[in-house]
Every structure is written in structure tokens, then in C-alpha cells.
Amino acid sequence: MTAGSAAPERDLTTDGAATERDMTASDDGQADSFELDRAAFEAAGRRRRTSDRVRRIGAYATLSLFVVISVGPALYLISPAFRDSVSLFAYPPEWIPRRPTLENYRFLFRNTEYIRWGVNTAVYATGVTLVSLVTNSLAAYAFARLRFPGRKVLFFLILSTLMIPVAAVLAPTYLTVRTIGGWPLIGDWIDLDTYGGLILPSAVSPLGVFMMKQFIETLPGGLYEAAKLDGASEWRIFRKIVLPLLKPALVVLGIFVFMITWASYLWPLVAATGDDYRVLTVGIQSLNGQFVTNWGVMGAAALLTIVPVTIVFLFFQKWFVQASMAGALKQ
């Protein structure tokens, strides 16, 4: 997109630099050596253009190599996913399936709980996303716009947990959820092997609160004040003024949280022990090394899981990239 405009621009500046040198040269020498300088200038320009071309080819070759490395492993999955496991070990290697088979998929759907895992993943990731969006934007509004005693202290406390990794609190969080699970009533909703127990501990990151607060603070303060004087309650201001203007930020945060959650492994691994609440990442990994690893099935499962995300990604690439940048703080 920018290629067309960038190339001539660079040429211009190159020329500019050369001319500059030219002029100082002719200042040093005779005034009538202009013709000579001009020839030298053109020769230099030619040399420069050739070395530019070499450099460009080198650059694109390097970039292409890394593209192959990036995408290659996923593309290669297509091959084992449509072969039986035995052919994997064949020599000479069978790069393209000679007799493509859907056997791996049949196994996946008949003999494993793949669909159940998929549904669980959807519920889990959607749940965490919704809980995060709602709670984070509400809290961010309070921190950004409302005045109450202890506001700064509480915000600092919450923010100080921003960098705490899941892994470091995995064990105590596990015990906490188990303990709550033993309580009457609430234990039916929040426990190991419940959606509540799966979702809530994954929705604790203060990143969204922080992000949304920053965003709300960039909204013109007059809007909030105007709405106040128009008689609107805090809740009405939040819903009618702030939330609509927050939409782009919410989309970015939502995509980020969803991406992180559906890819997560550690918490769902310990929070769900059976197939009923197992998610895709845990489920597919459980195929690895259970009895004898069926490599073809694993390949098929991985491929099947990645394809839909890739399609969604290609449609919403701009948002994804933005989301991952916004999330740089956490990742």
C-alpha cells in the first residue's frame, strides 16, 4: 500500500544527498568542472542503484525465509492430518498423502470428546471475555470518574497485581476454588469442574481496568460533566455516554482477552479434571501420550482447531494486531 509512495521518496532523498556532496565538491574545485561532476554523479547513482537492488533482493529473501518458518509447521500439518499414523514412519517419506483418509477425523469425533471440548472452550473463552468486559469497564469508570475515599490506594493495589503470572498463583487459586466449592449454594456454581470455577479465576487480570481507565480519561471531560448537569445518574452516563464511546476499546480488549483465554492451558488443566469441562487445549494435549500416541489424530485435531481461528483472523486482522499491541502490557 505504501510501497508506491515510499520508493520515489527514498530516491529523492538519495539524490538529494548526492547533490549535496556534488555541490561541496564543485565548491572545492573549479567552477567549470560541473560537467565532470555530473558524470561522476551519474556513475555514483548507477552504483547506488545496483547495490540497492542487491540489498532489496536480500531483504525479501530473508523475509520470505522467515515467512516459511512461521507458516510452514501449520501448513505441513495438512499432510499428517490426512494420513494414517503408520505412513508417518514410512521411508522414503510420504510428503503428500498418497491415499488421503478421513480416518483421523472419524476417530476424533467418535472416540474422543472433541466436540464437547470445543463447546467448553467457546463457553470458557466467551465467559471470561464477557465477565472481563463488564467488570473491567465498570471498575474503570469508577476509577476514572467517581470520587470516593481510598480511590488511589485501591487502584494502586489492583494495579500492583498486573504483572502476577497465572503460574505463580496457580496452586493457591486452585485451593481457593476447591474451598469455595465445598460451601453450600455458591459451591454449586463455583468449584473445580464448573464453568464458574473455570471462568472467574481467569477474569482477574487488571489489564482491562487499566486500559479502560486510560481510555475513559481520554474522553473529553466535558461530556461527563455535561451529562451530569443534564441530570443523568452515573449509571445512565455510563450506559448512554461512556459505553458507546468506549466501543472501539472494548472490541480490542475483547479480542485480546478471548485470544488469551482460548489459548490458555494451565488453569483449565487443573480446574477441569474430567471431559465435562475440559477445553480444547487440554483435551488435545491429553491425546498426546495416552496409551500409544496416535500422531495422525493429534495432527488432525490441531489442524481442525487452528483453521477456524485463522479464517477469523484473516477477516479481522487489523483488530487482532491492535489487540495484541494493546495487550503488550500483559503478554
Binding site: 512461521s70 489459548a263 487445549t281 487440554v282 495432527g299 483472523f313 495484541s324
Partner: peptide, 16 residues
């Protein structure tokens, strides 16, 4: 293309 590996969960990336 370079961003692509980030899409797959780490578990699946490692499997690839």
C-alpha cells in the same frame, strides 16, 4: 505471516 504463530495456542504450536 510472521504474526500467524501467535494465533495458535502454545499447546498446539508446540504440537506442530
Amino acid at each position: 505471516a510472521l504474526y500467524f504463530p501467535l494465533l495458535a495456542p502454545p499447546i498446539l504450536g508446540a504440537m506442530m
